[in-house]
Amino acid sequence: MEGIDLEKIYDLIVLGGGPTAIGCAIYAKRFAMEVLIVGKTFGGLIATTHIVENYPAISSISGQGLMELFKEHMNSLEIPYISDEIKNIEKVNDHFELHSFFQNFKAYSVCIATGSVRRKLGIPGEEEFAGKGVSYCATCDGPFYKDKVVCVIGGSDSAAKEALFLAQNTKKVYIIYRGEDLRAEPINKKRVLESDKIEIIYNTNVVEIIGEGKVKSIVFDNGKRLDIDGVFIEIGSVPNSDIAKHIGVDINDHNEIKINRKSETNIPGIFAAGDVADAPFKQAITGVAEGVIAAYSAFDYVKEMNIEY
């Protein structure tokens, strides 16, 4: 709780723990704003990425490593971070009150940068075998599948990178994709195609996961079955926008928060950025940029309120 004052009305409270939230807080701090970050997961989804090669100025780094750099920058500016989940936001006079189960906070402005969570397939066996062969994080659970046969379901760049990571230690990796061609970045697609451990099964959906205590096989929509030890599901993500709905922030059909080019929502003083927002391109670098814009807009908003720094 060092550096946290529960009586204070913060200029900006940033919700989230990924690069977007930290980028936003760094800029806010440099604008001399009183800023606090409240996040459920430090690092966000990118921390689960085994290798990041598209963050400008850093040729290659693990997702966790990148977030260590963010953390170091955050700490150097003495930006306080709390591990908690805000359940409710309400407007009280000129500020917002944010409530978690453990504490209440006050802020003149809020940036929602709560990111997204892995999308689930919703097929029989997925829930039953979660943690018993079904996984959503290759870097977390990959080490359990040394010399075993696994599959990655999905055809995105993330799916390709998960497969490449898993191929380092497993016996074989199948990529099961409903489309005709991987949507990965060309460099990762090339690596996948060149790997002698990865086999791609196109135009196929997995309709069931079967096992006894742990995963044994998967069933395809053509009725065929494939024996497998682990199933890694990488089919995109779902925005974490529940907190925004609570206070009446406009959400689109994909559950993303609607923002304008200033990262403003329909509610003055509430900003949003990153994967939770409706920007079309979901990358760490674009999330950081939106977070920075949110900080700038929050600065303008608070300045207009004539609050002394």
């Binding site: 430090f42 690092g43 689960t48 591990s83 994080c137 870097t139």
Partner: peptide, 17 residues
């Protein structure tokens, strides 16, 4: 936990606290 688990430090911190 494992060393490569990205979510583990957050949970370790929470349970420790």
């Amino acid at each position: 936990v494992t060393k490569s688990c990205a979510y583990c430090p957050e949970l370790v911190n929470m349970v420790s606290q």
